[in-house]
Design a protein around this nucleic acid. Structure first.
Lengths: 226, 226
DNA sequence: AAATTTGTTCACAAAATCGTCACAATAACC
DNA sequence: GGTTATTGTGACGATTTTGTGAACAAATTT
């Protein structure tokens, strides 16, 4: 049975969330402030944490960063609407998902399930990403799609690794340039397009679906079908 | 029962790791700095050491080298993400595995088990590498390919040994220089190319496939077909 | 000391990659 | 439906990286 830690100062919300999660078969523990949350995490790591951003004593950001210093346990943030999602999901904080308040308990449960399912699919190791019909090995610099090895150029590999290690998240061309090419790349952002094109071509060989989706007007996203 | 020594300055992390290892049936001892760790190792050798890289008084690397002067006890390094991969790879020589922070305790336990299992299977000294149609004997400094003995020069042998003892993993020229030639070799990294060329030439004699692959833009990799 | 073997560097050829452009295709909008 | 903005695509040349042979230096052996 999987354990979810709910960190939330409002007792009503805490109870509500707990009830719904228990109904889905999760074991639920709760903490009403950041310090208690940290202490609990340190004594036994839950399988997932639902973390409110606004907390007494120590806010959600700090708690999240503190946890991330050592642990990779998935974290779902509860935020007031209007918070920048970029900052929450971004590399800086490293939350796995976020839910804007007010939220429906049903949606919350769905997100918890989704994150846990995603994590289960991605095997333990830090250096190999696994997806259905696609695995990416950072040490060997090898990509396997549908049982066949695929030859990628360095840039193609770096690009794929970046996108695949943040699945379902949209990145603009500028963000991709900054992350894959390096800080403040001076060139044309359309360069990304060309590399995406070549990647798609190489990846589509088998009956594999197109795993890099275009988000019109925004950028690109690594799809994961599950 | 097997004993694991956990060397880590952060008390929370130390406790966390200990709890998870004890749950798996290991006897756990802890040390909060390098000097104490060394003292403990000298009084009683554990079956495995989990060693943080960042330690007060004496850093993990130094501890590792110090231990390695006399002992072959397996060591798993805890490194902060963002550590230069060069350094991590450097550790790999002395360490048996490494885990990047943040990590999941489950993964940590899995790695500890894996390392101990590997060591148990490997039995005594690990001085001969066997691959299909190729065996490399470190004691005799002999290489046999397709039943025939092959004469290698010292550098060629060291290079082959290094690559073959980390199969499938890509190393840049700089990393190879650092590992095979020695720390901070001043010379030209293209020297590696020449030695790779000669190695390939000598190894290809039989119907043997080219076991040293070029990974364009990244470096070289020892292939293993199995 | 001479000869042989080993290691390093260099220059050039060969190969692969990368970025950019122009233009076609597509989606969004009025 | 037509217009505009955005994305897909193919091709080309410049650039980078690698393979290779040979010359030179260093080390080792005879």
């Amino acid at each position: 049975m999987e354990t979810v830690l709910v960190v939330e100062d409002d007792e009503h919300v805490r109870e509500l969330v707990s009830v719904y999660l228990r109904k889905e078969g999760y074991r639920v523990e709760t903490a009403e402030d950041g310090e208690k949350a940290l202490a609990m995490v340190r004594s036994a790591v839950p399988d997932l944490i639902v973390l409110d951003l606004m907390l007494p004593k120590m806010d959600g950001w700090t708690v999240c960063k503190e946890i991330r210093k050592t642990l990779t346990v998935p974290i779902i943030m509860l935020t007031a609407r209007g918070e920048e999602s970029d900052r929450i999901l971004g590399l800086e904080l490293g939350a796995d998902d976020y839910i804007a308040k007010p939220f429906s308990p049903r949606e919350m449960v769905a997100r918890v399930k989704a994150v846990l399912r995603r994590l289960k699919h991605a095997g333990g190791s830090n250096d190999v990403l696994h997806f259905p019909g696609l695995s990416i090995d950072r040490n060997a610099c090898q990509v396997e799609a549908g049982g066949k090895e695929i030859q990628l150029t360095p840039k193609e590999f770096d690009l794929l690794w970046f996108l695949a290690s943040h699945p379902r998240r949209v990145y603009s061309r500028e963000q991709i340039l900054e992350q894959v090419w390096g800080y403040e790349y001076p060139g044309d952002s359309r360069t990304v397009d060309t590399h995406i094109k070549r990647l798609r071509e190489k990846l589509k060989n088998p009956g594999n679906k197109n795993c890099i989706a275009t988000v019109w007007g925004k950028g690109y996203r690594f799809e994961v079908t599950e």
